[in-house]
């Protein structure tokens, strides 16, 4: 646990060294949100009702805010990082530590997300609330959302780690990273809410883990009526936990195969 805290502490310190990038995101994200608000206001103004596919105007705006929060709280580049370390030979040094790569990468990813939570999520939540008042907001909905996000983060990390370990076999995993980005964007609800898809496709997605990365957590933030039910909350927690166990087992298997196939650059 001490190692974990120390890696986490170092990750935070490293993030502070590059404070410029999060200041830029704090300036630009509200600007892009304002453009989105204008667009959605036009769409809602020209529609026949106040609700489109179950979303009020403020909920729709906040859905897209939640997609931004997805990048702050859940998204991580572990796959790219492992691939880069394999390609430039730095992985050799990670393999001589008496600590598993999974724990090491998880601690690093978690530290970067906690940094984002404090310095990106919280300020953006306040800024967005000032721009568009979230009339649906309750503290319990926010807490449920954050809890689901923490599980979604673990799930996303494991997916990312598995793709990362593929680079032990293929060296570059860029194609898989691109596929992952497209799948998460389309099937996870990052691009648009899943209600916009045909019913058949939407039903198919319930059997996959991707909607639990962005779409489902966003429903809790938006305090949709079906999320008020605690049994639904526990059902979601249970499903994500099962996916976490499945992906954890896959990641251990991929790691065991990959590390034996590893070719260290330069020797």
């Amino acid at each position: 646990m001490k190692v974990f805290i120390e890696i986490f502490r170092m990750g935070l310190k490293s993030s502070f060294e590059y404070r410029g990038s999060f200041i830029i995101s704090l300036v630009f994200d509200p600007l892009t949100l304002m453009l989105l608000i204008s667009l959605l206001q036009v769409i809602y103004g020209n529609s026949q009702g106040d609700i489109i596919l179950g979303y009020t105007l403020s909920q729709m705006i906040w859905y897209f805010v939640a997609t931004r929060f997805f990048y702050y709280l859940i998204w991580n580049g572990t796959d790219k990082e492992i691939s880069n370390a394999v390609l430039n030979g730095e992985m050799a040094l990670r393999l001589i530590r008496p600590l598993s790569l999974l724990k090491w990468e998880f601690a690093k990813a978690l530290s970067s997300k906690i940094f984002s939570f404090i310095f990106e999520f919280v300020p953006m939540l306040c800024i967005c609330a000032l721009l568009v008042y979230p009339d649906f907001f309750t503290w319990i909905a926010l807490l449920k959302y954050l809890f689901i996000c923490s599980l979604s983060f673990i799930l996303f990390f494991l997916v990312s780690f598995i793709i990362g370990t593929v680079s032990f076999l293929w060296q570059s995993n860029q194609a898989l990273v691109n596929i992952k980005t497209a799948i998460v964007s389309l099937m996870g609800g990052v691009a648009i809410p899943l209600e916009f898809y045909p019913e058949v496709l939407k039903n198919a997605m319930t059997y996959l883990p991707f909607q639990y990365l962005c779409y489902v957590p966003a429903q809790f933030l938006l305090n949709k009526s079906f999320t008020h039910n605690w049994s639904y909350f526990f059902e979601v927690v249970g499903i994500i936990s099962i996916w976490i166990v499945i992906f954890y087992m896959i990641s251990v298997g991929f790691w065991n195969i990959g590390v034996k196939k590893y070719i260290s650059a330069g020797g």
């Binding site: 490293s14 060294e17 430039n88 040094l93 001589i96």
Partner: peptide
């Protein structure tokens, strides 16, 4: 095993670059 050995690879580093 790795607790009992040290490794220095001349062209690679394990120090955190920013700190």
């Amino acid at each position: 095993y790795v607790k009992n050995i040290g490794v220095l690879l001349g062209q690679k580093g394990q120090l955190n670059w920013e700190l």
